[in-house]
Design a protein around this nucleic acid. Sequence first.
DNA 1: CTTGTGTTTGTTATCGATACCATACCTTGG
DNA 2: CCAAGGTATGGTATCGATAACAAACACAAG
Lengths: 338, 338
Amino acid sequence: MSRRPVRMADVARAAGLSPMTVSRAFRADAAVGKETRARILRIAEEMGYVFDAAASGLRSQRTGFVAVTVPSINNANFADTVNALSRELGRAGLQVLLGYDLYDPAEEEALVEQLLRRRPEAVVVTGGAHTPRTRRLLQAAGTPVIETWDLPERPVRHVVGFSNAACMETMVDHLVARGARAIAFIGGDISDDTRGADRRRGFQTAMRRHGLDASRLLPIGAPPASMATGAAAMAAALDEGLRPDAVIGVSDLAAFGALTECQRRGVRVPQDVMIAGFGAYEIAAVSVPTITTIDPHPAEIGREAGALAVRLLADPAEDRGPIRIEIAPLLRVGGSTS
Amino acid sequence: MSRRPVRMADVARAAGLSPMTVSRAFRADAAVGKETRARILRIAEEMGYVFDAAASGLRSQRTGFVAVTVPSINNANFADTVNALSRELGRAGLQVLLGYDLYDPAEEEALVEQLLRRRPEAVVVTGGAHTPRTRRLLQAAGTPVIETWDLPERPVRHVVGFSNAACMETMVDHLVARGARAIAFIGGDISDDTRGADRRRGFQTAMRRHGLDASRLLPIGAPPASMATGAAAMAAALDEGLRPDAVIGVSDLAAFGALTECQRRGVRVPQDVMIAGFGAYEIAAVSVPTITTIDPHPAEIGREAGALAVRLLADPAEDRGPIRIEIAPLLRVGGSTS
DNA sequence: CTTGTGTTTGTTATCGATACCATACCTTGG
DNA sequence: CCAAGGTATGGTATCGATAACAAACACAAG
């Protein structure tokens, strides 16, 4: 458990070379004799030397970090995005520095500040709603900034996302086409979860467009939406005598919760009530019946955001104007609205 | 989008103080006049100064990082652990540097090396099976090392975990007490997922102890176990004419998949077949029927691991001998085995 | 007034790597 | 045989903060 005093200079001494040459050996591109490099790396390994990325980053002003914020890590959608992002960045030798804000803008502000202290080379945030100070911090960061999972009207800089509202309009159209009229919406009542709120707004817009009652809103409280809160919301609705012929969950988890509540009460899906969700979670494809949902292609968002970040870092000239990449979500019809 | 040339020295100049005093102002404990500190922080904020944690860490040899590895971030159990760990460490001003290895020991080795380059002050890894080089790296790291979610026979150093095998023995006992005899096990066939393999081994041990046939093993291939693979394994078993009177999934996700397959085929649960899982995922508590499972208390693991790390860092003398904290998993009986 | 104690601030060297420039050596071609 | 250009290596200063030590100052007690 001794301290690790092995520095690059120690390796250099052992190899009979200058630290500079050892430094070069640790970078793929630098000019070092093929044999020399192999010998250096072997000696370093034997000595138990571990490269110090902090010192390297300080001098070179390249930390290799990309800061990424998500609302929650316990969410399959965001996990897919982070996964793809991480893989894409890894290719370019960049490492994800991940943080989560629990859907709280104040937490996001503190988080962004924490992350910026590590001098990331780029910042990828989920969502387009931030506190004024968060915006300032991001704009002054001097690095590429990419917002995802949203299409903000006033983006900080670059965007890789989709319209949450439009998704729900699509879903309402689908349900109306299937004959639904009294459609209820579960969730999206907390404004902190801006994506949830957007979906709810999309629901209302579409309902009004169809001349239908947009007021069947079933609140579930603080995000994230869960199976349990979805079930509770459905239970409350049924107890109050609300008899929707279709229910849309702000996410598949809430939708599945509602589905189970129907099963417990003998309400048949889709005959008595249709159910739809959002997110294309695995549960939607496996449950009985399968749940109609919208696939926002989380992995594609991550891939595109990662590729964009790499592009912007490789050629800062690309960062002249804001770039906006729109991902097309896909309606997946399941047995719950057949 | 200008470079950020604002350094601590710039703030010091603007405040008419030495950099040292500004440095102190940014640490809570240091001795700085109350008014002076407030003025410094105000000026820093106005100038858009962002503290450079890399430079700070280099000089002070305290990066504030704790490296954490999990097999996958898309897993509610590990997410809960990381969450609790992160909260516990945050209290002490430590930041989680998270990486995932996709259940692949070679990936883990590369990951651990990457993380060590950032000079974490402690390392928390999931599981107790590593490549020899990973073990060497961890042991030579000169930092506290904590393995979680497992009780390795030959731990690297400290452990916060539970016995995956014992959990499954408990589950088999439960099912046998409920009258099950022909019990099948879904998953755990890939040795890379050592926790899954341990659970499977526990299943076999308990079955033999009861004098029952331990050979009903339904493979699902590469981890992680999912709802889809659980359903497929159940389908294959039923197609082959295997008629188990109980099925245990290596995780609740696989168990739920199996449950849905039964529903699709009109096999009644629990009357025709009992179903049990592992992990106390939300699905187990919400599905119809609810699924009997084992709660490994993931948050408690994270909390304990975090607290242990903080303790070891505060007082290195604590690191004299290996510490082993055992978490007691809890059987949660649901409708699927009632 | 002197000494002592505690609080606040300043000076210098340094953490471990790399940018930048210089140099030695080796080819190749005229 | 020498100039030109490429390849491999080394020397020095530096990235932005802080540890360690020093000193200035305030105030209380003797």
